[in-house]
Design a protein around this nucleic acid. Structure first.
Ligand SMILES: [Mn+2]
Ligand SMILES: [Mn+2]
Ligand SMILES: [Zn+2]
Ligand SMILES: [Zn+2]
Lengths: 126, 126
DNA sequence: AATATAACGCAACAGTGTTGCATTAACAAA
DNA sequence: TTTGTTAATGCAACACTGTTGCGTTATATT
């Protein structure tokens, strides 16, 4: 991939992620930017930014697709093996910087994994 | 919940799970039983069996819904906190009986978690 | 300025799962 | 066994997230 043009949509979406400390769902971006960009454009830009190693994606509750900024990823190597957290009260989703020790599974070759923790974020469980 | 009638659909679906050591996706059940039951019926029976603590569900690759037999769950208490494995070659999905040690997350109250391991099953990585 | 083509908007579609409603079947009571 | 209650079913239409094809527009290069 690569060769990405600096269009309005790319600029606006990158801004969203640079100004956010949390992950953002495609659904929310579409809702917010509905009047500015077609949803197809949003999906395509997110796809491309992921291909280019700028964003990574994962599935949250109900199979919704979430995106967040990558940390030192390139188009050829994605290292988004960290777990994610989703608050069941406010819906906020974050990348966690802790590392998980995966269980040893005999007779299986584990290539990747996804861990989604759910519960209450600091603001919600007081 | 509870008060479940022993209908054909319930019987057939329970049989599917009793004869399978792996998890089964709603998608596959619908494809297989298409000529026998309406997909709505299948979805509803699966829902109900889950409510009654007989099956548990989780999301696999691409957000597809998978079901598997529960082990000592009741309608009031579901303990399906085990991880799941999905083979990226043959698509097979299993419940894993290992226990995961969740990372300690400060300032968050973890209530539940989902760990999906992906890779190659024994039959596929030879 | 002219050109190449990536990115866009739009409409239609794909796939999984849900809902409303009339009909049928399970089960208990008579 | 017959009757009555209502859970379960089939069907069609829908909801929702995400995708595809294609003609048009905008970006970047020459
Ligand atoms: Mn992340
Ligand atoms: Mn399981
Ligand atoms: Zn919260
Ligand atoms: Zn396999």
């Amino acid at each position: 991939m690569g060769v990405i043009r600096k269009t309005k949509a790319v600029e606006v979406l990158l801004n969203e992620f640079n100004n956010s400390s949390t992950a953002i769902s495609a659904k929310k971006l579409i809702a917010e930017l509905d009047s500015t960009f077609n949803k197809t454009t949003i999906y395509r830009v997110l796809d491309k930014l992921e291909d280019d190693g700028i964003l990574h994606s994962f599935l949250g509750k109900e199979g919704l697709k979430w995106y967040a900024k990558c940390n030192g990823c390139t188009a050829s190597e994605h290292a988004d093996l960290h777990p994610h957290f989703q608050c069941l009260s406010c819906g906020k989703v974050e990348c966690l910087t802790v590392s998980v020790t995966l269980p040893k599974i005999p007779n299986k070759k584990i290539e990747t994994s996804q861990l989604l923790l759910q519960g209450k974020c600091e603001a919600c469980f007081v």
